[in-house]
């Protein structure tokens, strides 16, 4: 619909009101029949297009691997060999056949427990410290370069220090997870706090929110997208760190299992463990991402 051209900008709001009703021709579009079965078919096509390509790719890669490793003198086992030799590990993740002979599912759970403690502490501590640092420009300027350096240090490099400090493998492993994953959480939280828009601060000021209310009602929700970015990087790093830490500290975790399998030349078992680590890492990332999208609903859309 065309409005009459306003003579000047300032008078547009007045002049535009008394518009003569235009005689419009009504064009009716034929309604498309959306039958039930076409919708079901559309859903099936969508699922298939998401599932089939990765399956085809996996089959292809397994075939290439099989061909490459079937030659005599191949150093790595082929998929068929892994299947026959590690059959018990593949079919039952939760068997218990002895103190050191348990399913990989149990081992993953033990590792996850360590990650839960280390990462949980890192999340609490990281968000708290990040919130404090984000309040002050000078704390930010002073600490940010230090954190940027510290966060590049490999989990393995922390291990001797932590073993020396704790003299016990369990807290050392947890500390390594903590120290690896805490930096991105601190940094992202601090940036999120710094980036709270002035508008929200003004709203809080007009409402006379006290410090406590400001923290819970403005700061945390406003910084939530940043905090979750940090948490997501952190969970990935934790999972990287746990495997490395367990290789050296022992125990029944999935990391130590790999080290143990290597020492007793059970190569096929290692491949199964790798698959477990990859899948669990992927799921952990999905869980945190899902949590983020629930908590920050609306916030990031604006």
């Amino acid at each position: 619909m065309n409005m009459p051209v306003a003579k000047s900008n300032v008078s547009a709001s007045i002049l535009s009101a008394p518009t003569a009703p235009a005689v419009a021709k009504i064009v009716s579009l034929p309604l498309r029949q959306t039958a039930m079965n076409t919708r079901i078919r559309a859903t099936l096509v969508k699922i298939a297009s998401a599932v089939i390509p990765p399956l085809v790719m996996i089959a292809l890669l397994l075939t290439v691997w099989q061909v490459l490793c079937m030659r005599p003198g191949a150093t790595l086992p082929a998929p068929t060999k892994i299947w026959t030799e590690a059959y018990d590990l593949i079919v039952d993740p939760f068997f218990v056949a002895g103190p050191q002979d348990i399913g990989l599912g149990w081992r993953v759970l033990v590792s996850l427990q360590r990650v839960a403690i280390g990462y949980g502490l890192a999340a609490l501590f990281g968000i708290a410290l990040g919130t404090l640092i984000g309040q002050s420009v000078w704390a930010m300027r002073g600490l940010d370069p230090i954190f940027q350096v510290l966060r590049t240090i490999s989990p393995l490099a922390w291990l001797p220090i932590s073993l020396a400090a704790f003299r016990d493998s369990q807290p050392s492993a947890i500390f390594v997870i903590f120290i690896t994953s805490v930096w991105p959480i601190i940094i992202n939280t601090a940036v999120g706090i710094r980036n709270i828009p002035q508008d929200y601060r003004n709203v809080a000021a007009v409402l006379q929110l006290n410090h406590f209310e400001f923290f819970w009602k403005i700061m945390i929700p406003s910084a939530a997208p940043y905090i979750f970015t940090g948490l997501r990087i952190g969970i990935g790093l934790s999972w990287l760190a746990i495997v490395a830490a367990e290789m050296l500290t022992g125990g029944v975790g999935i990391g130590f299992f790999i080290w143990d399998a290597w020492n007793s030349s059970r190569l096929p078992d290692i491949f199964i463990a790798l698959a477990y680590i990859g899948i669990v890492g992927f799921l952990l990332d999905r869980v945190v991402a899902g949590l983020a999208s629930i908590v920050t609903r609306g916030t990031s859309a604006n």
Partner: peptide
């Protein structure tokens, strides 16, 4: 600032969450 002088801001300033 205080609620006895409430402001409607140009860019609405609603809390998006």
């Amino acid at each position: 600032p205080g609620p006895d002088r409430a402001v409607v801001f140009q860019n609405h300033s609603l809390l998006p969450w």
